[in-house]
């Protein structure tokens, strides 16, 4: 497992305490899980994602991610409607491990309230939370 200093936390993302990230892409947001989360979970074997068109509140569960011997819930960092899901993960869940911030993205959301992004943590603040 990685030391905290080895965790990659890009500056252009915002982070939730429940270990998801969100990234602005014009009107929409891309959402995935952090490098820390993928490292803690270990080899990811399955990702269960919602359907396009589903809507969730901020903090609501939108899916699960499974390693061989654990299941973790995924929570919305920002509320909104799902406009795209990364269906490649169905056959290649390892992308979440190998590339958590690009190829391993999970859903794209049209936020109900874009200002919710401001409540999320910066990389530094998230790292501080991890250090406890």
């Amino acid at each position: 497992m990685k030391e905290l200093s080895e965790i990659n936390l890009p500056d252009d993302l915002r982070y939730a305490e429940s270990h998801e990230w969100a990234k602005s892409a014009g009107d929409t947001l891309k959402i995935g899980i952090t490098d820390y989360a993928q490292d803690q979970l270990g080899d990811i074997v399955f990702v269960e994602l919602p359907d396009v068109g589903d809507s969730f509140e901020k903090g609501e569960e939108f899916g699960t991610v499974e390693s061989v011997k654990a299941v973790s819930e995924l929570y919305m960092p920002v509320g909104g409607e799902v406009v795209a899901v990364n269906s490649v993960l169905e056959d290649s869940p390892e992308l979440v491990n190998n590339s958590p911030y690009s190829d391993g993205w999970m859903i794209e959301v049209k936020p109900d309230n874009p200002s919710e992004m401001d409540d999320l943590l910066t990389g530094d603040a998230y790292l501080e939370k991890l250090k406890g």
């Binding site: 074997v45 399955f46 499974e66 390693s67 061989v68 011997k69 654990a70 299941v71």
Partner: peptide
């Protein structure tokens, strides 16, 4: 596929 089972997913 043990993640379906009770010892991991408990009440779910």
């Amino acid at each position: 596929l043990a993640t379906r089972e009770q010892h991991i997913r408990r009440e779910k």
